[in-house]
Design a protein around this nucleic acid. Structure first.
Length: 210
DNA sequence: AACTCGGGGCA
DNA sequence: TGCCCAGAGTT
């Protein structure tokens, strides 16, 4: 992967999306944690509807810590995996109060102690809530980075490492949002809209499948 | 590495 | 009507 090509791709993305692109709405690290847990394997339209309604009533760890799992499950049952998510949110809230003085922790190691928080979610919190330099590799980032040819690997952690090697540190946070956004809108898993893509000239997948 | 959770949106 | 979705935990 040569530097000029990477630089050009970043430039084009920056031009296309000058402001950070995210469809998760949140106004605190804790709300971002909730929104991210809720978003797992669910579409943003469903999740945004639920989070908006939820945050009007509850948006602090203390609001969830003593809630019954069935009670919260009922609040969020219009999205999938709602029993798991209810459990994750309540147990994470309890741990945040117990071990982290009521604040969402800002290290990956601590974040990953929270139930429902894996490496991907931890990196989202680090990058977006705490302005730390992390790249969250979800299915979209994984697929798009491979298709563009930014990385060549079938392992998630390797994608993260390789991206960190070729992308300037100050762009890491933006990059993971761009790749996710691109993956969802254009570079879809099946039937990607290559004809609408502004990165055609720099995409290995497009240029090898013609 | 495979399996499970899961309702709603969309073709 | 069937397929898929801003993953993580368990086995």
């Amino acid at each position: 992967m040569n530097v000029r090509k990477v630089t050009k791709i970043i430039m084009l993305m920056e031009e296309k999306w000058p402001k950070p692109v995210t469809e998760l709405n949140y106004s605190s690290p804790f709300e971002l944690l909730l929104a991210t847990i809720l978003s797992a394997q669910s579409t943003d339209k469903q999740v945004n509807k639920v989070t908006k309604r939820l945050f009007k009533k509850y948006n602090q760890p203390g609001d969830f810590a003593e809630m019954k799992k069935d009670e919260l499950a009922q609040e969020i049952n219009s999205i999938g995996l709602y029993r798991n998510k209810s459990k994750f949110i309540i147990e994470s809230s309890q741990l945040i109060l117990k071990d982290f003085k009521g604040k969402v922790p800002d290290t990956r190691k601590e974040l990953m102690r929270l139930p429902g928080v894996g490496r991907k979610t931890a990196n989202v919190i680090l990058a977006s809530a705490f302005q730390k330099n992390a790249i969250a590799v979800d299915t979209h980032v994984f697929r798009v980075a491979n298709r563009l040819g930014l990385v060549k690997t079938d392992k998630v952690v390797e994608v993260e490492k390789q991206l960190m090697n070729i992308i300037p540190e100050e762009k890491w946070s933006d990059l993971h949002h761009w790749l996710i956004f691109l993956g969802r809108r254009i570079c879809k898993a099946r039937n990607p809209h290559c004809n609408k893509c502004f990165l055609q000239d720099y995409c290995e997948y497009y240029n090898s499948s013609k």
